[in-house]
Simulated scan of single mutants.
Amino acid sequence: MLPTITPDKIDLPAGTRLQFPGTIADYEQLLERLGDRAIPRLRFRDNHILLMSPLPEHGKEIDVIVDLVKALLRHQDRDWDSFHPITLRYGKEPGLEPDACFYIENYQAILGKRKLDMSIDPPPDLAIEIDVTSFTRIEDYISLAIPEVWIYKANELHIYRFTDNSYVETDTSLIFLDFSVKEIVTQYVDRAWQVGSSVALREFSQTLQSRENK
């Protein structure tokens, strides 16, 4: 099946990546045409438009990681709000589409909001990207100043912390200081492929409960 991009239709087979020259106006038009569609993913970078249609692997892995983050937050008795996927934009800057984002410290500031504007609303505390066929570049996140960004790629979690107007890779998460997040995420994503997402999540919840009872 070949990609189809016409004034009336945008259809990309799973796993397809397209890059072609374009302007910010072209990006705006495509963004408007896509509306609330989560697929294909859209990004504007270096005067090029990038389109990506995720593989099933992409969806499974983000689902597992989001469930793990929620389990950790519940374990810590913390409130949150989450969105996935979502387009985040600061003013007229090109938008970004993390696979998931979490508001934790500032979750009350966005309660009830159907749309977010990063020039008005606070950024999420955490954004998560799965790189299977996508095109994540951590520098793209600088304009949004999201405190922590996770990129899961090639069976490894990369954690980036925003500091001094740039992102620095680190081995620890400021959101979950008491947990080895890099190890946990890698272990349970792999486990989900072996036994299924629900079983892996149940095992993880049992591990958290055992830790609490010690």
Rank of each mutant, 00 (worst) to 15 (best):
R191T: 06
P122N: 05
L31N: 08
F176R: 04
E97V: 00
L34Y: 09
S82V: 09
I86T: 02
I120H: 14
L72I: 04
Y188W: 12
E183Q: 14
Y152N: 01
T207I: 12
N47D: 10
S205A: 13
R137K: 13
Q19W: 14
I24K: 09
D67N: 15
L51V: 04
G95E: 04
L42Y: 06
A100H: 05
E105Q: 13
L55W: 14
Y90F: 12
E61S: 03
Q194F: 08
R43G: 08
H75G: 00
I49Q: 08
F162M: 03
E212N: 09
K92S: 10
A38D: 11
D67Q: 13
G59S: 11
E169M: 08
D81V: 10
L31G: 06
F102R: 02
T136Y: 13
I128M: 02
K9W: 05
D46E: 15
K92H: 08
L55T: 11
P40D: 04
N47H: 14
H158T: 06
T170P: 02
P98Y: 04
G59A: 08
P98K: 07
Y141L: 01
K9G: 05
T87V: 14
T172G: 14
V66K: 09
L96R: 12
S173H: 07
R161A: 07
E32N: 13
L72Y: 09
I5P: 02
D77A: 11
K60M: 09
E105C: 03
F176E: 04
A100P: 08
M52G: 01
Y103V: 00
R211N: 12
Q206W: 10
G95R: 02
G59W: 07
L42D: 03
T207P: 10
D8F: 15
A127L: 02
T133F: 07
H48R: 15
P40F: 07
S210E: 15
A25E: 09
D117A: 13
D131F: 09
T172D: 14
V132N: 06
R74F: 11
Y152S: 02
Q19A: 10
D140I: 01
P124S: 06
L68N: 03
A100L: 05
L73Q: 00
D36T: 13
Q29L: 11
K113V: 00
N47T: 11
Y160T: 00
E212I: 09
K60P: 03
E169F: 01
D11C: 11
L157D: 05
S119R: 10
H48G: 00
T207H: 14
L55Y: 14
Y27P: 00
N155L: 15
P98W: 10
D121E: 00
V66C: 03
R43C: 03
L42F: 04
I24A: 02
E32Y: 15
D67F: 14
P147S: 06
R211D: 06
D121G: 03
K182M: 09
I120R: 15
G15Q: 08
M118G: 05
R114S: 04
L34E: 07
E32R: 15
Y27N: 01
L31I: 03
Q187D: 12
V132P: 07
L144Q: 00
R41V: 05
K182E: 10
R74G: 06
L50Q: 14
G196H: 09
P147L: 10
